[in-house]
Design a protein around this nucleic acid. Structure first.
Length: 478
RNA sequence: GGGGCAGUAGGGUAGCCUGGUCCAUCCUAGAGCGUUUGGGACGCUUUGACGGCAGUUCGAAUCUGCCCUGCCCCA
């Protein structure tokens, strides 16, 4: 399949690096002949599968149920919620024909599924005993993006949209669900070792039809932010429109309150970008398609012995639950090292005659730490090594983020801050001041109520108008 | 949204300005055979390309137009 030939551009040229690593590490093939639509390579798809399994596990543990709604939404349902339409109408694909005959009801390819799901919720929900209802699905969605498309980041077909849609009795219950979702997303990104900044999107930037939106942003190597999760409190906007009501304990019909929250394959873009290096991917063990690669070092006449030894190792580690692979291809060991480093395998084990004689295995992790470990205790050794590797990866990413966040106490400081990262500024909350900040600095006001260990929640004078302000996130976003 | 630049084998390139000597260069990858294997092995043999459509021309990878696709910069 695809393989190296030349090498990866340095990560300091992030844009070139990103474009290259996607095919060199066999994540996505961008050569599909439709703009903004790309193909998953098997290795990328395996990574996707493990990432989404982490997400499914978290949701399932938190009493969500997986479901599946149709891709096609009839126009009259789609057009019901006014604000929602306004937010999406410019980017909806319409199916207008069946064969050569024009459809009497045009069908939208879902840009998101509220209007597919909520008419059914209206049928399903009768009583307070049906609440809360917490469903999710992982589906593709379509948006006719007019801006520059980019694999995994800005797509016309989002192939991997995990969207949860919950229904609650009261606004406060829904608010609690928003917080549960934020906590879920936090622990999801913790498993990916990707540090995030949580903030509340300004009103003009919230989800169309929501009361408010909480977002998770990652900071990419070039300092731009990537929105990698959103949680929306929908209030009763959609339930009023779609007539989602329930009978309360006293027999009264009440309007339900809703939330929805989503994560897309941008989560994978973040894993790739935050951890990768000049040699390729660096994957957290929790989602690496291959967690351990065993490279047999075949020298002279001991080939069969070495291969048998490698197979026994694979068997033992596989039985212990690790995704393990022996690379017995007819290549030089060095070529295999480069190959698996490009694909981000967390731990490499090398076994050759010397190791067999010494009763050891050479263990080298993807950050370059090398040690000889006891063959007899291999399962425990591997567990410890992977855990340590994950911790280092997380610490490295945290340090990188801490380095990219700077506090700016005046307008003049912001351009410097956002050149290679994000700025935290005090902001009074007015759209006017946000506009001034954006105009003067070329960066956007992304969120308020910033939740990050690097940000002091106490405020100060607004950088624009000097009235009382609170910390807000300013940066250039993807 | 505005403005650039580009598209040549699977990937990367030379050729384009100044049309013919290009049945298209080189690197890499792929296939076959052999010798190798503790950080990208080597030898021999071999497959494979001018984004699409139209136009100009005796003749187009090269010039013109449109379309598609991609990248960069600015908003």
């Amino acid at each position: 399949m695809e393989d190296e030939g030349g090498s990866l551009p340095g990560k300091s040229d992030f844009s070139a690096w990103y474009n290259d690593i996607l095919w060199r590490a066999e994540i996505m093939d961008v050569r599909y002949p439709v703009k903004g639509i790309y193909v998953w390579y098997p290795h990328g798809f395996a990574l996707r599968r493990h990432v989404y399994q982490r997400l499914r596990d978290l949701l399932d543990e938190a009493d969500h149920q997986e479901t599946l709604f149709p891709l096609l939404i009839p126009k009259h349902e789609f057009m019901k919620e006014a604000e929602h339409i306004k937010g999406f109408e410019e980017e909806v694909y319409w199916v207008t024909h069946g064969g050569t005959s024009e459809l009497d009801v045009p069908l939208a390819l879902r840009p998101t599924s509220e209007t597919a799901i909520y008419p059914m919720y209206a049928l399903w929900i009768r009583s307070h005993a049906d609440l809360p209802l917490k469903l999710y699905q992982v589906v593709n969605t379509f948006r006719y993006e007019t801006k520059h498309t980019r694999p995994l980041i800005r797509l016309r077909e989002i192939t991997s949209f995990k969207e949860a849609h919950t229904v609650h009795a009261t606004w406060e219950d829904a608010e609690r669900q928003v917080e549960e979702a934020v906590a879920l997303y936090r622990s999801f990104y913790e498993q990916l070792c990707v540090p995030i900044i949580i903030s509340r999107r300004p009103d003009w930037d919230k989800f169309p039809g929501a009361d408010y939106t909480i977002a998770a942003d990652a900071v990419m190597p070039d300092g731009r932010t990537l929105q990698i999760g959103t949680v929306h409190h929908l209030g009763d906007h959609f339930s009023k429109t779609f007539d989602i009501t329930y009978e309360d304990a006293s027999g009264e019909q009440q309007c339900a309150h809703q939330t929805c929250y989503g994560i897309s394959e941008r989560s994978i873009a973040a894993v790739v970008s935050v951890h990768g290096d000049d040699r390729g991917l660096v994957l957290p063990p929790s989602v690496a398609p291959v967690q351990i690669v065993i490279v047999p070092i075949i020298v002279g006449k001991r080939e069969d012995e070495v291969l048998a030894h490698a197979a026994a190792l694979e068997q033992e580690l596989g039985a212990a639950g690790y995704r393990t692979k022996v690379d017995s291809r007819a290549l030089r060991p060095g070529a295999k090292y480069y190959y698996w480093e490009m694909r981000g395998v967390p731990l490499r084990l090398e076994v050759g005659p010397r190791d067999i004689d010494a009763g050891t295995v050479m263990a080298v992790n993807r950050l370059g730490d090398k040690s000889a470990v006891d063959r007899a205790a291999i399962v425990e050794e591997v567990a410890a090594q992977l855990e340590q590797f994950r911790d280092r990866l997380r610490a490295r990413a945290e340090a990188e983020l801490a380095h990219k966040i700077t506090l700016a106490s005046s307008m003049e400081e912001i351009p410097g801050s956002v050149r290679e990262g994000v700025a935290i500024v005090n902001w009074c909350g007015s759209e006017d001041c946000a506009g001034q900040i954006e105009k003067a600095t070329g960066a956007a006001l992304l969120g308020s109520e910033v939740r990050s260990q690097y940000v002091d929640p106490d405020g100060g004078p607004c950088v624009a108008c000097r009235k009382a302000g609170r910390p807000a996130l300013v940066g250039r976003s993807y």
